[in-house]
Amino acid sequence: MTEILSIEKLSKTYSLSLPWSRWVRRYLWKDQSVPQIRTAVENVSFSVQEGEIVALIGESGSGKSTILRLIAGLEKPQKGQIQIEKKTVSTPEHCTAPETRQIGMVFQNYALFPHLTIRQNITYGLHQQNKKQQQARVTEILDLLQLKDYAHQSPHQISGGQQQRVALGRALASKPQLLLLDEPFSNLDVMLKAPMRQEIRKIIQETKTTAIIVTHDEKDAFALADRIIILRQGEVQQIGTPEEVYHQPQNAYVANFFGKTNLLNETEKNKGAKLEDGRKAIRPENLTLAKNGVRGVVKDVTFYGQYYEVVVEPKEGEEELVVYTPNLEGVEVGATVSVTHQD
């Protein structure tokens, strides 16, 4: 396995453009409370192996899209460096132009050229090849994406799912070393998302492409990625496989990011994943209502379809426990129950 991408200690800040009144406050009245810069990415390092699919996940403003734009060369870093196939492409002093990087990018709004047909859109990036090669490659891509029948239509004449496939095909046409996908599913209907995830994973795997996906939806990350990188306010929180980040979160933020978690003080009887701060995280579905274990009073029961959420208050001064259970078996609000950890 060779390393396709390597990022070292990358940082990016933006200087805010201040409106008149705030400019006066900042620079004439020297009001320090007016911020000048916003930190988007802070000291981020990771690497991506050939053929791997990596997901960058975080809330909005966590810097995930900025990292993608830095890799593509659309932004310049303030610190750190980016290497693609051992060649340094971005440092604060020098950035190679995006058009020379051989990176494919799928944009959130697809960014299809509205005045070109589907076929012309896909051909756009192949201008260095001759006509024959272009023809062959476009036909190949159209076959792969099952878009043959739409080749001569305009982007606005086809559906959202098809537009997304065109965007993917356009990015893949020139066989990029690295494929970047920026929130690829956020513009799709909920019903379309699941099949599109499957399809895109299939296409990426078939073409043996190395890919980085930016998303805020943990389902996208779990379904597609080999590794997940969780970001918060520009800083990496954890890097690991989907199972690792879900079952062995390193801190409370990561634990809560992927759904409700019981964070318990460290005692011997509490099992579960140990966090950096010493607490332990236990997923609600790993707890069951049982005869033995921690005793408490049921405070609230909510039905969510696949499961019931039961909130149990053990004793005064202790944290509430949340338990997911497929059936209640007679448990109701006010009843005394025991909670235990599944093995």
Partner: peptide
């Protein structure tokens, strides 16, 4: 949309080519 410029760039087009092929027609 600025993402059209970026898409064109990421597909290997120089600024001149982007102006000619993307912007002028639009």
């Amino acid at each position: 949309s600025p993402s059209l410029d970026e898409a064109s760039k990421s597909l290997g087009a120089t600024p001149g080519r982007t102006l000619l092929r993307i912007h002028l027609p639009l």
